[in-house]
């Protein structure tokens, strides 16, 4: 039968997955790491991994995607997502989408990593003083060298929205300022008939995780958050809820890539 083994299509006489194991430590079948031997079927995807060996580049990509649900990798690899703002939301959305293997990411931010970012944003002390675009790109390339990461070091205004995001049908709004959020969302939806926008509103503080939800408006605006918890004097922004909200946004991006428009 024909199966995919570490990214290559092979013809095999093997009937069970462990027969392909050789000296490897792990056998991953269709996204699941096997604990007991399992019969193979036509078109199965198998990855075998030896933990202490650096794989060659050909095999690495299939190994990295081996825990994905089958057929997800092919779809995310040909997808493009833009991320507006690389703070607590945008940096974590970008990391999640890079781990997914989204083929092209556009990262837009004007800012520089400073110490107050580190309580919630995906940056390290070694990134202090760097442009967020550069610091994040460095991380993403380290996480997944098989994706294309484009960066634009710019402040988003009414005037540059169309130029910045032209060609991206999924845009994650991950800005801080509510006026800029409203402007960006309105401009994108108004200027691009096919764009789907995944925005955030209400993620400050330490209220219940379960209050953060993804909702749909206007047919193509997804808003993640609890809608009310604003960053204000006396209410900070902290890693857990920021990451939960970023997780909502990244998962909605994945769902859209997979053709699932429901929240």
């Amino acid at each position: 039968m024909r199966v995919s083994l570490n990214g290559k299509s092979i013809n095999t006489l093997c009937k069970f997955a462990f027969e392909l194991k050789g000296e490897s430590d792990l056998v991953i079948l269709n996204g699941y790491q096997l604990t007991k031997d399992t019969a193979l079927k036509e078109d199965d995807t198998v990855c075998v991994i030896k933990k202490d060996v650096m794989p060659n580049r050909d095999e690495l990509e299939s190994m990295m995607a081996s825990r994905h649900t089958p057929k997800v990798h092919e779809k995310v690899k040909s997808a493009k997502v833009a991320i507006a703002g690389l703070g607590g939301l945008g940096s974590h959305i970008a990391v999640a989408l890079a781990r997914l293997g989204v083929g092209e990411l556009l990262l837009v931010d004007y800012d520089i990593v400073e110490p107050s970012n580190l309580n919630r944003q995906s940056y390290c002390i070694s990134h202090l003083g760097m442009k967020k675009t550069d610091a994040l790109k460095r991380q993403l390339v380290d996480i997944n060298c098989f994706i294309s990461v484009k960066t634009v070091d710019a402040y988003i205004t009414e005037k540059n929205v169309s130029d910045l995001f032209n060609g991206y049908n999924i845009v994650c709004e991950a800005l801080d300022n509510p006026e800029t959020k409203a402007m960006l969302v309105s401009k994108l939806l108004s200027n691009f008939a096919d764009v789907k926008v995944i925005a955030a509103s209400g993620l400050a503080g330490f209220g219940s995780s379960n209050d953060i939800k993804t909702k749909i408006n206007f047919g193509r605006l997804y808003t993640c958050g609890d809608k009310t918890s604003a960053a204000v004097v006396g209410q900070g922004l902290m890693s857990p809820r920021v990451q939960i909200c970023a997780g909502h946004q990244a998962n909605m991006a994945l769902r859209l890539i997979l053709g699932l428009g429901e929240v």
């Binding site: 300022n177 959020k181 969302v185 925005a199 509103s201 408006n217 918890s229 604003a230 204000v232 922004l237």
Partner: peptide, 10 residues
């Protein structure tokens, strides 16, 4: 009419 409001934080 449909209205979506935004609060700050990101």
């Amino acid at each position: 009419i449909e209205i979506v409001s935004f609060v700050g934080g990101g």
